[in-house]
Each structure stands twice: as C-alpha cells, then as structure tokens.
Amino acid sequence: MMVAEQTELFEKSNDKEVIKCVKQFFSRYFMRLVLKSGKSLASLQSPKYDGMPKAPGVSEDRDGKLVEQADCQIIVESAMEAFQNCTSVASLVVWRSLVRHDLDVQIAMTLHLGHSQFARRKKSAMIEFYYAFTGRLESKGIVNDELDFTDYLRRKPDNSGTNLE
C-alpha cells in the first residue's frame, strides 16, 4: 500500500513566502502597472471591460512607450485572468482586501465568516491567486516567482543610437 507524503496541493512551508509576495505585488506594483498599461482601475472593475487599450497620446518616443505599455498590459491582463481563474470567494477576498483596501471585517461580514475563519480564508485566497497568476504569466513567457515587477516600472534608457541631425 502506497502512502502519500504530501496530499495537499500547496506546501505549508512555502505559504508565508507566497502570501508575502502577493501582498507586495498589490502594494508595490499593481496600481502602477494598471496606470502604465493605459487602463484605469474603474475599467478593470467594470463588467463591460473589453480589454481594448486606450488610444495613446502623441509623443516623440511613441514606439518605446507603446512597447513599455504593452509589457505592463500583459502583466495586468494576467492578473485579471488570474482573478477569473480563482474561485469566486478567493477572487472577492483578494480584490476587496488588496486592491480596494476594504476592511477585513467588512469582507468577512459579506461572506458571513467569523474573524478566524476569514483569516484562514484570506490566506488561502492569496495562495490561490498566486498560483493562478504565476500560471498565467508563465503561459505568456514571463517567469516571476517573487512577483517583482520593478523592471517594468523603471524608465528604460533609449539605446536606439539614432541621431536626428
């Protein structure tokens, strides 16, 4: 008879790091990535969200800015797809607590959960989001185990070497 050593989907030892990564992603990067992608948070919340980019403004480095905008847009779209791939409760918990910054007590009341039940559910929701999000990123060729997107938010130097004289 074969005994499974680990029957859980996620490893307990990694949970704290995963939760930390998700919290840091939303506190440090998500809103800036949304704005740099040419979207607004309201458009992401809207049920009529169509995913179409807004028309870019006229600028001298339009191509470079479009590439940068597209990079940010891929990450934002991956996050939104991760929300869709999560259970409805996990999606609601992560969205309302880490994007909208609603109080935990408000979200717990919505779900009819006590404080300790909600605390456990919030942790599992962040873990669920993490795996859904990293899976979406990997499907688009972005491997990022720590959800660090500093490079996407930094102004990239112009290395075109063209001279307009």
Rank of each mutant, 00 (worst) to 15 (best):
M2L: 12
L9A: 02
E11S: 01
E11Q: 01
K12I: 07
E17K: 05
K20C: 13
C21P: 09
C21I: 11
C21G: 14
K23E: 15
K23M: 10
Q24D: 08
F25P: 04
F25A: 08
S27G: 03
Y29N: 06
M31S: 11
M31C: 09
R32Q: 07
V34I: 10
L41S: 05
A42C: 09
S46K: 03
S46I: 03
K48P: 04
Y49N: 13
M52F: 06
A55R: 11
P56E: 01
D61R: 13
R62T: 11
R62Y: 12
G64E: 06
I74K: 14
V76G: 04
V76P: 06
S78Y: 05
S78G: 04
S78D: 01
A79K: 00
M80T: 06
E81H: 00
A82F: 04
N85A: 15
N85Q: 06
T87K: 03
S91N: 09
S91M: 07
L92T: 07
V93N: 03
V93A: 00
V94G: 00
W95F: 11
R96C: 02
S97H: 10
L98P: 05
D102P: 02
L103D: 00
D104P: 03
Q106L: 14
Q106W: 01
I107K: 00
M109T: 13
M109F: 06
L113F: 08
L113C: 04
G114C: 02
G114T: 10
H115Y: 03
H115G: 05
F118I: 03
F118K: 00
A119W: 03
R120S: 05
K122R: 10
K123E: 12
S124G: 07
A125M: 06
A125C: 12
M126L: 14
M126Q: 07
E128T: 06
E128F: 10
F129W: 11
Y131T: 00
Y131H: 08
Y131S: 01
Y131C: 01
A132G: 10
F133I: 02
F133D: 04
G135Q: 12
G135S: 11
G135A: 07
G135F: 12
R136H: 05
E138S: 13
E138W: 07
E138N: 14
S139N: 11
K140N: 04
V143S: 12
N144R: 07
D145L: 14
D145M: 15
E146R: 15
D148A: 14
F149Y: 09
T150F: 12
T150K: 15
L153R: 11
L153C: 01
R155Q: 14
D158Y: 15
S160I: 15
S160L: 14
N163T: 14
N163Q: 01
L164N: 15
L164C: 07
E165T: 13
